[in-house]
């Protein structure tokens, strides 16, 4: 069972994540959008959305630090275990709170503002449920596990982190996760579920972060003939009908 949960399942999810994005990009470029609902309501969005998104950027940064950087590295630069935890909590808890509060505002808005609610699809609702649960479990692990050490102290950098890194060397040790507290196991399991759902939800807009905007010229000129990656005309070129050079 633990082999399935912590070896097979993550790989299935990651495969779906990668292949799914490629497929979605090719199948549904038109549907690849933030599907913003700002036109319907902007007062609550103005508070909730930046709070959530900037909070999430912090949370993701924290995960990179905690999961991808081995404990040896922080030890090597002379950062003690305690000091690391102080830094992690000082950064993680405000970011986490911002994300949770932002999400709460956004979900409240989605439920109570009529037009926004009617623009919410089943797909969205399922995604919000999983995303919300993952975030709440993550907060619980941080607050209960590290801050108040409810249920004993657990150093995830000895368990979860090595396992997570091993996934990318293709040698995950399932026993590392099996030994982790239930909160961490649920968080990891649902997070991989979310990763598998990712390409099929509106979350794809994360990969459209327009960083190129900082460097491109103000005005884009394009020839009638150029449609990068596609044929000309409204529809994609069909195989065998490519234009003659």
């Amino acid at each position: 069972m633990s082999t399935f949960l912590w070896v097979i399942y993550p790989y299935i999810c990651l495969a779906v994540f990668v292949v799914g994005h490629v497929w979605r990009y090719r199948y549904d470029k038109f549907g690849w959008t933030t599907r913003s609902s700002q036109l319907y309501e902007s007062r609550l969005l103005r508070i909730g959305s930046p709070l959530f998104h900037f909070g999430m950027l912090g949370v993701v940064g924290g995960h990179v630090l905690g999961l991808l950087f081995p404990q040896d590295w922080t030890d090597a630069v002379g950062l003690s275990h305690e000091a690391y935890h102080v830094i992690a909590l000082a950064g993680g808890i405000p970011a986490g709170i911002a994300a949770v509060v932002g999400l709460a505002i956004l979900v409240y808005r989605r439920r109570t503002v009529g037009p926004v609610f009617s623009a919410t699809t089943v797909n969205d609702k399922v995604m919000y449920a999983v995303l919300g649960t993952v975030i709440v479990l993550g907060m619980w692990n941080t607050v209960a596990g590290s801050l108040f050490t409810i249920g004993g102290e657990y150093n995830y950098r000895d368990g979860v982190s090595p396992w997570f890194r091993q996934i990318f060397w293709f040698q995950p040790d399932a026993s590392l996760m099996a030994a982790a507290p239930v909160g961490f196991r649920l968080h990891a399991f649902l997070a991989f579920t979310l990763i598998a759902m990712w390409p099929f939800t509106r979350l794809v807009h994360v990969f459209s972060a327009p960083l190129g905007y900082l460097t491109r010229p103000w005005i884009v000129y394009r020839s009638r003939d150029e449609r990068p990656g596609r044929g000309t005309g409204t529809r994609a070129q069909k195989r065998g009908w490519e234009k003659v050079q």
Partner: peptide, 15 residues
């Protein structure tokens, strides 16, 4: 066009 972060709005060279 200058405001578009994605660069989706463009001015056609021809016309």
């Amino acid at each position: 066009a200058a405001s578009c972060p994605s660069g989706a709005i463009y001015k056609r060279e021809e016309d």
